[in-house]
Design a protein around this nucleic acid. Structure first.
Lengths: 216, 216
DNA sequence: CATTTTTTGTGAAAAATTTCACAATTTATT
DNA sequence: AATAAATTGTGAAATTTTTCACAAAAAATG
């Protein structure tokens, strides 16, 4: 198997998730004027061991410096290129309720890797009253708008009565990645589409459960 | 080591997270009038294998029925009691900006396990203009209000210039669990306080990275 | 009611991930 | 310039988690 240019080999999911966090952390350090950082310090900030950080770094093709740690700019550049963070991908929001309209108007993030270019909702009233500078459309237009604007990512922000129809239209429009904030777990039979389910209610329950089984 | 009444033994974090999702899934099934379900069907909905589901179920002290699957009500009751979801814990929101005010006014969730009873912000103007039926206070009152109302959970919803001061006050107020939605990773030296860091920006980067390393 | 089908529960195997341990390298110090 | 201190990189060990495989049990069928 041939791997993309800058990746050493298959990278485990936990390592990739940590490196995404390292990227934001290094950016913060960089803005504070720091030029280098040790695996120990990164680990402390991430809440993982320094060995773990060094293993993760091993997946990038940039070496640290024994005795002096990692050069922040060099590692950031490596992460940015390896994971394509220099590319701004087009995204859309599905569902313009509370969370959706919050995101469509506040999606400025540090180190952006995507930009929201469209919003969709199946309710005509919601579309008419939407307060946003980004164009909004009814959900049946998902396939055509996605193709027209080459939108790669979708953020599902509202529990919709017909999530199956939505995902069908997203796939019809050639979507490549979905972040699903509804409590309904999405699974794609098409393994080339990447789906990230983020169930905030489940997170609350998890924390509550942690307290209970630890005697609180 | 003696384990709490209804737990067989130490439960792995991934199993606990999945069981939290199973709980919501079973509730949905129950509302649809279903009375039993197989590990296969649960697995399909969760996007994991049926063996995985059966292993997870093994941590509860309820058996399934060979040939007929799991009784939905029985398993829900078991999860609810084992993980304390029948107990409604008091929670507060720190930071009444966009996300914070959204959560304080829309925290009704199916199968609730907590209730928001207070909001905090360090900005006096924000407090004065807050549109909410839930009482709001300046952040310096965190310790006293937490103790007075026996608040166990905190949801940090805003990047604050002084997150260290906030966590100090939360600990002073005897907080037991924190869900942190800011991109700054919180780690507690006090291992009896459970912290869940949810960095939405990192999730976006992760999805973007997945596309890139898979050739998109 | 015997037979077939479905489905659980679990010990064992496999796979994935983390942690360890220490040689090697670079920097800092005297 | 020699010595001490800091820090990386990595193979091996340990741990954790998932997957497998199949006997056992219950349900469905004819």
């Amino acid at each position: 198997m041939i791997f993309p240019k800058r990746i050493k080999s298959h990278i485990p999911q936990p390592s990739l998730l940590r490196l995404c966090k390292v990227y934001a952390l290094l950016n913060e350090m960089h803005e504070n004027g720091k030029t280098s950082i040790s695996s120990q310090e990164i680990g402390d900030r991430l809440g993982v061991g320094s060995h773990n950080v060094r293993k993760d770094m091993g997946f990038l093709n940039e070496a640290g410096i024994s005795g002096a740690g990692y050069e922040i700019e060099k590692i950031m550049k490596s992460i940015k290129e390896t994971f394509g963070f220099n590319k701004i991908r087009k995204a859309c929001i599905i569902g313009l309720g509370n969370l959706g309209s919050l995101m469509i108007n506040n999606h400025a993030m540090p180190l952006p890797c995507f930009s929201i270019v469209a919003g969709f909702d199946s309710n005509i009233n919601t579309l008419e009253t939407a307060q946003t500078t980004i164009p909004v459309y009814p959900t049946y237009e998902i396939p055509s708008i996605l193709k027209q604007h080459h939108i790669e990512l979708a953020i599902i922000a509202e529990k919709d009565l017909n999530l199956d129809a939505i995902t069908g239209r997203l796939m019809e429009g050639g979507i490549k990645g979905i972040i699903n904030f509804t409590p309904v777990i999405l699974n794609s039979s098409d393994k080339s589409i990447f789906i990230r389910n983020i169930d905030i209610f489940s997170e609350f329950r998890y924390l509550s459960a942690m307290l209970t089984i630890n005697g609180n």
